[in-house]
Design a binder for these strands. Sequence first.
DNA 1: ATGTAATAGTTGTTTTTGTAACTAACAAGC
DNA 2: GCTTGTTAGTTACAAAAACAACTATTACAT
Lengths: 145, 145
Amino acid sequence: MTVPADFDVRQFLPYLLNQAAEASSLEFQKVYKDKYGMLRNEWRVLFHLGIYGEMTASEIGARAQMHKTKISRAVQRLAERRYLTRNRATRDRRVEYLTLTVPGRKVYQDLKAIAADYDAALTEAMSHKDTAILRDLLARLALRT
Amino acid sequence: MTVPADFDVRQFLPYLLNQAAEASSLEFQKVYKDKYGMLRNEWRVLFHLGIYGEMTASEIGARAQMHKTKISRAVQRLAERRYLTRNRATRDRRVEYLTLTVPGRKVYQDLKAIAADYDAALTEAMSHKDTAILRDLLARLALRT
DNA sequence: ATGTAATAGTTGTTTTTGTAACTAACAAGC
DNA sequence: GCTTGTTAGTTACAAAAACAACTATTACAT
């Protein structure tokens, strides 16, 4: 709890993180927004289903650290667009299994490829070692919740 | 444009950045929200004025990369709470000089101290060298806009 | 001097988010 | 079986953000 008298708020980690997150999200956001009319939460749900296959809303919530209302609305919109299908579980009828449709998987593959390119562009000016450190620290910070 | 077939979207930098930003902002957000009823944009405006002293809204916008409507509304609320005063410039009467009041500066000092502690807690588990890399890369990513 | 464009900041309207309350289904104890 | 508590997901309402249009003032070219 020792507070250095000269602490510079411009170096405050949450501030830097938010700035970097906003700046780096902008360009890619335009892709899924303009090209597919998707919101960020929808893109997140989509890509979790793309990675893990069939999942329930709660499972997505646990993985993505998203609140259930966000997921509920994202799923609704993705279902309207026919990017995923919902299947009520027989064993526990509260639960719904979510699966990407063929068009949904196509969108996922497309966005994933664009994301890969964009990620490469973002890290272009960084050393391989530094980006590894960056990703590791970010993942750890994200888990801190 | 070489896309590795095995690109893992979970490692996508904007995603990691957003996750880390959200997680690390949460706790501190509670402080300025619960203790001072402030929004994030207000805290940002406040701390820019705390650092740089008298500024105009546009100057804050340029430094913080915030849109002018965000600043306008943040300034309004900070003025209502008497945390800052607005002074119309005589030379160019479109411009307003913003300055923290004594209570405003007090709030800034308090939040800054808490931020320092919190920053220390966040980086506790990281090596000094790694946090330096982290801050540097984040700052660079933020500038990329 | 006068019309046109640019800048500083505000306001209004629409989206999106956050919070809390809700329904439906299950689980466990009695 | 029946009450009580828990979980999955949805919906309603309030708060906040995004976006566009606006006013006032200055700058600049003719």
